[in-house]
């Protein structure tokens, strides 16, 4: 049951993120990418196996416990991924704010300064 819940959550978050990322508004694109990143984090969390298990801690000198032991690695992985994702999120939001302040535009389709479109006669445009 918990596995199904996580699976649905991953799918819904990824779908919502993809929907936002495919729009033309810059801030929506960033939020969409962050949502996709969150769904990836949830997926990483889920691959360790969900359900009842013993903590993966063994006292010194004692034998390993019987029965299933939780996999501690996905938690370490997901923590790393969250930290990295957080840094990139801050950068991305700051970049979009700077772009909007500089150009006043929030439309991804209007971003042609680094890739100027062809001139009217079909020749390549000028790059400053």
């Amino acid at each position: 049951m918990i596995a199904l819940t996580i699976a649905v959550a991953v799918a819904v978050t990824a779908a919502a993120g993809l929907y936002l990322a495919l729009s033309r508004d810059l801030m929506r694109i960033v939020i969409g990418l962050l949502l996709i990143g969150s769904s990836a984090n949830l997926f990483v969390f889920g691959v360790g196996g969900l359900g009842q298990a013993l903590a993966p801690l063994v006292e010194p000198g004692l034998p390993a416990p019987d029965g299933p032991v939780a996999d501690p690695l996905p938690q370490a992985l997901v923590l790393t991924a969250i930290v990295i994702g957080f840094a990139l999120a801050c950068f991305a939001v700051a970049l979009v704010l700077a772009l909007q302040r500089r150009t006043g535009a929030a439309d991804a389709g209007a971003m042609t300064r680094a890739e100027p479109p062809a001139r009217a006669d079909g020749e390549p445009g000028d790059l400053a």
């Binding site: 694109i29 990418l33 971003m111 680094a114």
Partner: peptide
């Protein structure tokens, strides 16, 4: 720091961030 740098950075960010995800 000019607008073209920011735009290029945004395109680099979106496609590469998607790739790393």
């Amino acid at each position: 720091g000019r607008a073209q740098h920011l735009e290029a950075g945004f395109k680099y960010l979106t496609l590469n961030l998607f790739g790393t995800i």
